[in-house]
Design a binder for these strands. Structure first.
Length: 493
RNA sequence: GGCGCCGUACCCAAGUGGCUAAGGGAGCAGUCUGCAAAACUGCGAUUCAGCGGUUCGAACCCGCUCGGCGCCUCCA
């Protein structure tokens, strides 16, 4: 497959160092707060990348870290007068809850910074020994001037990197861009013993230590949000390459932001939605919300920013409604005669397979992949008008499910899908004997169910006047009824 | 100030030198339906922010202008 490499600024053919094995490291989260949609996007992008690589037949070792020691964590703990470890445990748990709801695959390794102190210290000691870092009063800084290629990822030249325009420069640094490898701790702060006194690691060094430990000195893919390109990833490259004397990651992959009103979603702007919040606010059940969110996030190419809104989410939901509607019809034995168009169907499936592969190979062009699914939906629907054999239906559904799985989509039992454009929704199944049943979520639901039963009985008697009155009455309350081929009535509002 | 990204129909969004500018949402009309809904069919950008240039040929390349955003500070 082709993948865009930030390091070279172009799409490149992915050639893992070991032919059948892809090793990738993705910067995870700092666990000091609930994660928001932006974090979800990053998680889902790399989730899909992993799934696709596996689909391609690669063995994939996927490492995603937790930053579990950091100024923000300490600050949070202070504010809430509890220990930093309590903060960490709470938000790791919350992170798992969110990832689980989003059906994000669990990485193969999820290292924590604090479990790698000996590696971190060893790495810093080596950098000091090599003379590319210096020790000042318990702090250790990496000397950017020592690394010739500094700036190659972000495309910044050293002369341009005149810091101080926006930050106060630590006087003890030799150069404003030098960054901390080790920070001396103040009394009362969490600390680890080191040759330079008690302290904690700087932010960048942990990722070098953990990626090298779990993936080796040079590995294939290093990913994260594009806000990490500078300085985080630039610094990782400098320190890692200084340490190993060899290339760090071959391919650097960065996802775009989630925006609100075209502005980056961020803690500091306060314009963010946490994942938990979105699940709470959505009127659909969790699995449906998760799928709508995923569809929405994948409907824009991963490198572009994408703007979140209720409208955008419900557009994604509507697109999925059409797909799940087809899935239901494919599962029903229903009215279709066995006319078939085996050849026509095969042609469509072959066309789809090619489109799927091509779009995914092209730098994970998921919007194009979704278009391919929609195209297949339309083609199959057309054939369905004529009639599809049982076998054809099964094959088609299979294809949606197996290829959809690569995107983490279309895995819900089709009966569990909720068809509604907004608000809440339910469905009442009335079988031929007229008995009805399904869960209620709303006090109104029981009444609606009764109306549907009354209407059903009226229709049995061919009393269409009464049936229509009931339909209209419900319609006036914004409730739409759909009589389905299998004799059930579905409603939505 | 430095570096970079983006501007495609009512909305979202592919396409980045050459067949009719994908796909989705919303909308309108028709087929189907006892009536509906769903599905299907048809309609919808002579045009890709604007202006110049390169080219036989540009939404795609170059330049300028306008507009939006991002990184340079913790950030997915």
């Amino acid at each position: 497959m082709n993948i865009y490499n930030t390091l070279t600024g172009r799409k490149e053919i992915l050639k893992p160092l070991e032919p059948d094995h892809v090793r990738m490291y993705v910067c995870g989260v700092t666990v000091y707060d609930d994660c928001h949609l932006g974090h979800a996007r990053s998680a889902i992008v790399f989730d899909v990348l992993k799934r696709y690589l596996v689909h391609q037949g690669y063995r994939v070792t996927y490492v995603r870290n937790f930053t579990d020691i950091d100024d923000k964590i300490i600050k949070r703990a202070d504010q809430e007068t509890r220990t930093w470890t309590e903060v960490v445990e709470q938000y790791i748990k919350a992170y798992y809850r969110d990832m689980d709801r989003l059906h994000v695959v669990i990485p193969d390794v999820e290292p924590r910074a604090t479990d790698h102190m000996s590696e971190i210290i060893m790495l810093i000691a080596d950098l000091l020994e090599k003379g590319v870092a210096y020790h000042v009063q318990g702090d250790v800084f990496y000397e950017v001037a020592a690394y010739q290629a500094y700036g190659r990822l972000s495309g910044r030249k050293e002369a341009e990197l005149l810091a101080g325009a926006r930050v106060e420069v630590d006087e003890r640094k030799k150069h404003p861009m030098d960054f901390a490898l080790w920070k001396a701790s103040k009394p009362g702060e969490p600390s680890w013993e080191s040759p330079w006194g008690k302290g904690r690691p700087g932010w960048h060094i942990e990722c070098s230590a953990m990626s090298i430990r779990h993936l080796g000195r040079t590995f294939d893919i290093h990913g994260g949000g594009k806000d990490l390109i500078f300085p985080h990833h630039e610094n990782e490259i400098a320190q890692s390459c200084s340490y190993t004397g060899q290339e760090f990651a071959q391919y650097w992959v960065h996802n775009g932001f989630v925006t609100i009103d075209q502005e980056k979603m961020s803690k500091s702007l306060g314009n963010f939605f946490t994942i938990a919040e979105i699940f709470d606010k959505a009127s659909w059940k969790e699995s449906v919300t998760a799928e709508a969110l995923r569809y929405f996030l994948l409907s824009t190419h991963y490198r572009s920013d994408l703007n979140f809104s209720d409208h955008a989410l419900s557009a994604a939901k509507s697109a999925l409604d059409n797909l799940y509607d087809l899935f239901q019809r494919l599962e029903e034995d229903g009215a279709c005669q066995e006319v078939d168009g085996v050849q026509a169907l095969d042609a469509h499936l072959i066309k789809f397979d090619r489109a799927f592969e091509q779009s995914m190979d092209d730098d994970l062009n998921t919007p194009k992949t979704l278009a391919a699914f929609q195209r297949l939906r339309a083609d199959v629907n057309k054939l369905g008008q004529v009639g599809l054999s049982k076998e054809g239906k099964t094959t088609t559904l299979e294809r949606f499910r197996t290829c959809g799985k690569v995107l983490g989509l279309f895995q819900l039992p089709s009966k569990e899908w909720e068809f509604s454009s907004t608000l809440l929704e339910g469905s009442v199944n009335i079988d031929s004997s007229g008995s009805a049943g399904l869960e209620t979520g709303q006090e109104d639901d029981e009444w609606i169910k009764q109306q549907i039963e009354k209407r059903y009985n009226a229709r049995e008697r061919k009393d269409f006047a009464t049936a229509d009155t009931i339909r209209q009455e419900l319609a006036s309350k914004g409730i739409v009824l759909e009589d389905r081929a299998d004799g059930t009535t579905r409603w939505k509002r």
